[in-house]
């Protein structure tokens, strides 16, 4: 019998520290599978965040740099500008990317920084024990919104892909989820597209992946998947918010008198 499915080479053969059922592990594997399939492990540098995925530098076999909280897009900018020949990705959570690192995220995008951003959105600060995140849903109970997030005092969740899709430098802004095998396959396809964008010099590509946090949501892994499907996806609709290649193809079609896709 031949092995049909196993750990990709660019994911280190170590036990991940994540809680049981945490979907970070799936997303790590998808990034690693894409790196393997594109044959770019030896020319890739990853930048990891502060948050639950802070130890991602121990999990990817490519070279890794640990960034201060929220600064991964700036660190990745430094790597890419110094060494444009390298493939560069950041791996960030929602507190990192959409709160403390908002300026770095927005400006890397608007510069059209030629990097890949993997944005894991589970609506909570996992590492510090489940505080309210910029992406926590209205009404959601966390340790710092113990009566449920009240938009009147705590404001509204940030929809990152929608926001970044308005910027000219963004090449790809897409939201996926890892709640099911079809969605996992779609996520992988989009991560691959993001890395291909970088190789084609298209600019900033962000893949937002809706994820779970069973421990801090206070649910079992299976219940967490259900919540992701029933509460998170309706608030954060999946889909392609911007794809510069489709936009350009459509512009060409329209110019030739055809219909847009």
């Amino acid at each position: 019998m031949a092995v049909k499915f196993q750990r990709p080479h660019s994911l280190c053969d170590v036990r991940l520290h994540y809680c049981a059922g945490c979907t970070h592990g799936i997303i790590h594997r998808l990034v690693a599978e894409v790196i393997d399939e594109m044959g770019i492990e030896g020319t890739t540098v990853g930048v990891c965040p502060v948050g639950c995925s802070v130890f991602a530098y121990n999990y990817f076999n490519c070279d890794m740099i640990e960034a201060p909280h929220g600064r991964a897009p700036a660190v990745a900018t430094g790597v890419k500008r110094a060494r444009p020949d390298l493939n560069v990705f950041t791996y960030q959570g929602d507190g990192d990317l959409a709160a403390i690192g908002t300026a770095e995220t927005v400006h890397a995008a608007t510069r059209g920084e030629n990097i890949v951003v993997i944005f894991v959105n589970n609506g909570t600060y996992g590492m510090t024990g489940g505080q309210m995140a910029p992406t926590t849903l209205p009404g959601q109970v966390t340790t710092t919104s113990p009566y449920g997030r009240d938009p009147k005092t705590a404001g509204y969740p940030v929809r990152v892909c929608e926001m970044l899709s308005t910027l000219s430098g963004t090449a790809l802004a897409v939201r996926t989820a890892v709640d099911s095998v079809p969605h996992i396959r779609e996520t992988k396809k989009m991560i691959r597209k993001a890395f291909e964008n970088q190789q084609r010099g298209n600019g900033f590509s962000i893949v937002e992946v809706l994820s779970t946090c069973p421990s801090n949501w206070g649910l079992t892994p299976k219940e967490s998947i259900k919540r992701l499907q029933e509460e998170c996806i309706p608030y954060y609709p999946l889909g392609v918010y911007k794809d510069v290649e489709i936009a350009e193809a459509n512009a060409d079609l329209l110019a030739m008198g055809g219909a847009a896709k």
Binding site: M1, A2, V3, K4, F5, Q6, R7, L11, R15, L16, Y18, G21, C22, T23, H24, G25, I26, R29, S180, V181, I184, R185
Partner: peptide, 19 residues
């Protein structure tokens, strides 16, 4: 049937599929 869907869903690369 070796579809590997269990392995794709596994967050820990704890499943190997052979066929």
């Amino acid at each position: 049937i070796g579809c590997a869907m269990c392995a794709m869903m596994c967050p820990d690369c704890a499943i190997i599929i052979e066929n």
